[in-house]
Design a protein around this nucleic acid. Structure first.
Length: 424
RNA sequence: AGAGAGGUGGCAGAGUGGUCGAUUGCGGCAGUCUUGAAAACUGUUGACUGUCAUAGGUCCGGGGGUUCGAAUCCCUCCCUCUCUACCA
């Protein structure tokens, strides 16, 4: 949620920024917010005055009662009748304006930074780095959905039987590969100074609102009606919500957390060849890194997250590229976002395996996560997060890129974690 | 799931209709003392809104009600703890 003060003080820049995000009604919607805000302030002034008057009279009555002047007290009571109805109607319009303001404000996406490229489609994302060369696969190389059958390591049909499409069963070395990757990613993050968190994988509504998954994307989350809980779409939600309604100490920042969780996404409306195999699942595993910083440190933190993810991909020996997302392709909440894609050689496709975003104060404003600054005042923190990494597409690329006639070769960095060198 | 107790400021813990946004203790901050520190003493110390700054307003788990006036009474929802039951 954007801060009104910014819309007010930098109205023109804000409109331009929203337009970059392909938000067409920027000018009108910002005007609406500012208009409601002014109106709300006017009503609030009247309401506060009426309340102040009521408080004054109530106090006087109290004193009169104490000193036994019952008659005078009764006379004062009569005075409050009209004041009461006035207060009530003012309160009602105040509350109405407040919710109108909220509605108008939550509609607005985050303002992209000036570094964000112009553009409306994924094709306009800017490749900022390409690393590694795709392997030369032999003639009989096959996509991962054939490899997992060949080596019997991931079973979609079985998952289908137990749960449904998009819930694969990992077996034998497939399961061990998963576990190895999770531990590898966690250890690397811990080495980089992140604190490991094991959060709940179900969240309540308040947490969904805190990170902005509600109310917009409730159709994307699994929802348990009996308990009014949502299955998390990413560890970002529970981990970031640790800091909801919290005022942090400056010396606690930056906060760096890492967490492994399964992630659940309904992916309503997704189908077709491009989501085959491991490319898109309802349940998948992910290790997520989250940072909370002072505003001045956010850019450096963002860069450090990008470097961390690069390092992981290089240790795994996967060819990758980094995209700086253009305005139109960015998420609602981010201010600047880098996507990481690995090349999956048999599918001959780039697969998104991570995105590292900085949210400025957009999430913090909704979370009410602040820190006490040097000036003694409370300021909103900046939040950042990135996948490090999402497993299924990493697995897909590893299987495809490392397939040989002898089997699938495990990357050296991973062998201490898997305990085996080959899937064959 | 059943029975009981309870949710108050960073924490502990008072407060059962009238200057209570809230006694007090701890913690935090500033000062006195000290070469320095500790101790002791003194002062200070919530959030939001609002104002140029004051003032004013709101907040005692959430929501609603009674009342001139509610942390305090009523209704309702949520949560926590203890015991019992069940259970990895």
């Amino acid at each position: 949620m954007l801060q009104i003060s910014i819309l007010k003080e930098q109205k023109e820049q804000s409109i331009q920024a929203l337009l970059k995000k392909n938000y067409k009604s920027a000018a009108a919607d910002i005007d609406l917010v500012l208009h409601i805000e002014e109106e709300k302030k006017r009503v609030q002034l009247d309401m506060d005055n009426a309340l102040a008057e009521s408080n004054k009279i109530a106090k006087q009555i109290g004193e009169l009662m104490k000193s036994g002047k019952k008659e005078e007290a009764e006379a004062q009571k009569a005075q409050t009748v009209s004041l009461k109805s006035l207060t009530k109607s003012l309160q009602e319009s105040y509350e109405s304006l407040e919710s109108q303001l909220y509605d108008a404000l939550v509609k607005l996406p985050n303002l992209p930074y000036s570094a964000v490229p112009e553009g409306t489609t994924p094709e306009e994302n800017v490749v900022v780095l390409e690393h590694g060369t795709p392997p030369q696969l032999s003639e009989n190389a096959v996509p991962h959905w054939d490899l997992i059958k060949k080596y019997d390591i991931i079973d979609f049909e079985l998952g289908n039987k137990i749960a449904g499409a998009g819930f694969p069963v990992y077996k034998g070395k497939g399961a061990r590969l998963q576990r190895a990757l999770i531990n590898f990613f966690l250890d690397e993050a811990i080495n980089a100074g992140y604190t490991e968190i094991q959060p709940p994988i179900f969240i309540n509504k308040a947490s969904g609102f805190g990170t902005g998954n509600l109310p917009d994307k409730d159709g994307q989350m699994y929802y348990m009606t009996a308990d009014d809980l949502y299955a998390i779409p990413t560890a970002e939600v529970p981990i970031t919500n640790i800091y909801r309604d919290v005022i942090l100490k400056r010396e606690d920042l930056p906060l760096k957390n890492v967490g492994y969780t399964p992630c659940f996404r309904r992916e309503a409306g997704s189908w077709g060849a491009h989501v085959r195999g491991l490319n898109r699942l309802h349940q998948f595993d992910k290790v997520e890194i989250v940072q909370i910083t002072e505003p001045k440190d956010a850019a450096v933190a963002h860069q450090s997250m990008v470097e961390h993810i690069k390092m992981l991909l290089e240790k795994l020996g996967l060819p990758y590229r980094i995209l700086k997302l253009c305005g139109g392709d960015m998420s609602f909440t981010s201010a600047l976002c880098f996507d990481f894609e690995v090349y999956s050689a048999a599918q001959k496709r780039w697969l998104e395996v991570s995105s590292a975003s900085t949210f400025d104060t957009f999430q913090a404003n909704r979370l009410k996560c602040r820190y006490k600054g040097e000036d003694g005042k409370n300021h909103l923190v900046h939040t950042l997060n990135g996948s490090a990494m999402a497993l299924p597409r990493i697995v897909a690329a590893l299987l495809e890129n490392n397939q040989t006639d002898q089997g699938i070769k495990i990357p050296t960095a991973l062998i201490p974690y898997t305990g085996f060198e080959w899937i064959n």
